[in-house]
Amino acid sequence: MRLEILPVLGIGDVAEGDDLAELIAGAAPWLRDGDVLVVTSKIVSKAEGRLVDVPAEEGPARLAARDEVLAAETVRTVAARGATRIVQTHHGFVMAAAGIDASNVDASKLVLLPKDPDASARALRAALRRRHGADVAVIVSDTMGRPWRNGLTDVALGVAGMSAIRDHRGEVDPYGNELSITQMAVVDELAGAGELIKGKCDQVPVAVVRGYLTAPTSDDDTGARSLIRDAAQDLFSLGTAEARTAGLLAAATLADTALAGGAAEVTEEALTRAVAAVRPSIAEATRFTPVTDAAAVAQLGTLLDGWPATATAAVHCRLADDAEGTPADAAALIRFGADVHRLRAALAAQGLSTTLLFGPDGSALATLAV
């Protein structure tokens, strides 16, 4: 395979209502079938009128207006550090400031992402094919940062005429190993390749990658939406501080009658780990005793009201008397309750849900059914 990356020169500034297909075809009459057009999302947004007015002068009014626009473009905040906001947009993209841009535009405007980048890519591709006879693939690209790595790179927000992902699963490598997880985000790689000659200050908003495709696909597949990871599979859906805050809130609001039988396997080792985790933070008189013997657990089910049928283990919680045998006072009982809750939070952190069952009224005794 031999690839060429060609700049499309002479497009100039783009304004609302401009016909991108005409501008691109006029600047690149040399387009061929099978070319991949990498189009900066900013000119798509400008042509589609995705601009908002803000005060031109730097100051509180401009910041307030920008914050209002950011809030409107945000579904949820993923991470925030100072003035920086990493958010999820309505499209599903996770990026800084929802992709809102103030560069290469009049100071009184902000540029938003295209409302539907896949639809924008399809429309541009169809116009070029219908009016100019060029059967090309189109990638709408934008610049993003990346977790764990410094520096920015261009990625695909929308695509038409090719699949976003090259799926190698089921193929066999030269050593005879079947590939099981390899899926390459080829449109992101092509977007990054196009950025090598577009630049940020050169006013070259379109690049052509030639040689990758022999011909575009006849349909538009699922577009760049297929690159957005499903929330259930996202292991890093929050920033560190935000995940910690969410965990603390979840621990603070654990119900006394949480469903027993968590997602994780209930083992003596898991119970012991949870007890060890809270040991430095609990009162000296607080005692936790894991119970995993099947017969003992079954007996608890006959003795304690409210015992959940799915429970397979337990932790006895009690407050030891002092050396003189004096019963615990109110303050000690309150601290004991806090210690029991700490243990429940530690068990929940391991995926183990618990039901809190109390001993006789007034006694410092409780049992966690796990």
Score class of each variant (00 low, 15 high):
Gly161Phe: 15
Thr272Arg: 07
Gly261Val: 10
Leu196Phe: 12
Thr240Asp: 08
Ile165Glu: 02
Asp173Thr: 05
Gln233Tyr: 15
Leu190Arg: 02
Ala276Trp: 08
Ala246Asn: 01
Thr214Glu: 06
Asn177Arg: 13
Asp230Thr: 08
Asp188Trp: 13
Thr214Ser: 14
Val204Phe: 13
Ala191Ile: 05
Ala232Ser: 12
Ala231Gly: 01
Ala258His: 05
Arg229Trp: 11
Ala193Asp: 00
Asp256Leu: 13
Gly262His: 05
Gly223Phe: 15
Ile181Leu: 13
Arg279Val: 01
Thr257Val: 11
Ala252Glu: 02
Arg229Asn: 05
Ala231Thr: 02
Leu179Phe: 14
Ala224Lys: 00
Gly194Phe: 13
Arg273Glu: 15
Asp219Thr: 11
Ala270Thr: 04
Cys201Pro: 02
Leu249Phe: 14
Ala277Ser: 10
His168Cys: 11
Glu265Lys: 10
Ser218Gln: 06
Glu171Phe: 14
Cys201Phe: 15
Asp202Ser: 15
Gly261Asn: 02
Asp167Gln: 07
Val208Gly: 05
Ala241Pro: 01
Ala263Gln: 06
Asp219Arg: 07
Ala252Arg: 07
Ala215Ser: 09
Thr182Lys: 12
Ala191His: 03
Leu259Gln: 04
Ala231Glu: 01
Arg273Val: 13
Glu269Thr: 09
Leu179Gln: 06
Pro216Gly: 10
Leu238His: 08
Glu171Met: 14
Ala243Gly: 06
Glu189Asn: 03
Ile181Trp: 14
Gly247Val: 05
Pro216Tyr: 14
Thr217Gly: 13
Gly158Met: 06
Leu196Lys: 04
Lys198Ile: 09
Ala185Cys: 07
Gln233Lys: 11
Ala263Glu: 03
Val209Lys: 07
Glu242Gln: 10
Ala277Leu: 12
Glu268Cys: 09
Gln203Trp: 15
Ala224Asp: 00
Leu249Val: 08
Leu157Asn: 01
Leu196Met: 12
Val275Gly: 04
Ala276Ile: 04
Ala241Asp: 01
Leu238Thr: 00
Thr217Val: 09
Thr253Glu: 03
Ala260His: 04
Arg210His: 11
Gly247Arg: 05
Gln233Thr: 04
Ala193Arg: 00
Val209Trp: 09
Gly161Trp: 09
Ile181Met: 11
Leu259Ile: 07
Val208Cys: 09
Pro174Ser: 06
Leu254Asn: 01
Arg229Tyr: 12
Ser237Cys: 11
Ser218Arg: 09
Gly247Asn: 05
Leu271Cys: 02
Ala270Tyr: 07
Asp167Trp: 12
Arg225His: 14
Thr217Gln: 11
Asp230Pro: 03
Val187Phe: 14
Cys201Asp: 08
Gly170Ile: 03
Ser218Trp: 12
Leu235Tyr: 13
Thr182Gly: 00
Asp256Arg: 09
Arg166Val: 14
Pro205Tyr: 11
Arg244Asp: 08
Val206Glu: 03
Gly192Asp: 02
Gly239Leu: 08
Glu242Arg: 00
Asp256Glu: 07
Pro205Asp: 00
Asp167Cys: 12
Ala264Ser: 12
Glu189Val: 10
Gly158Ile: 07
Val275Trp: 10
Arg210Lys: 06
Glu268Met: 09
Ala260Ile: 03
Ala270Trp: 05
Asn177Gly: 10
Leu235Lys: 06
Leu235Val: 10
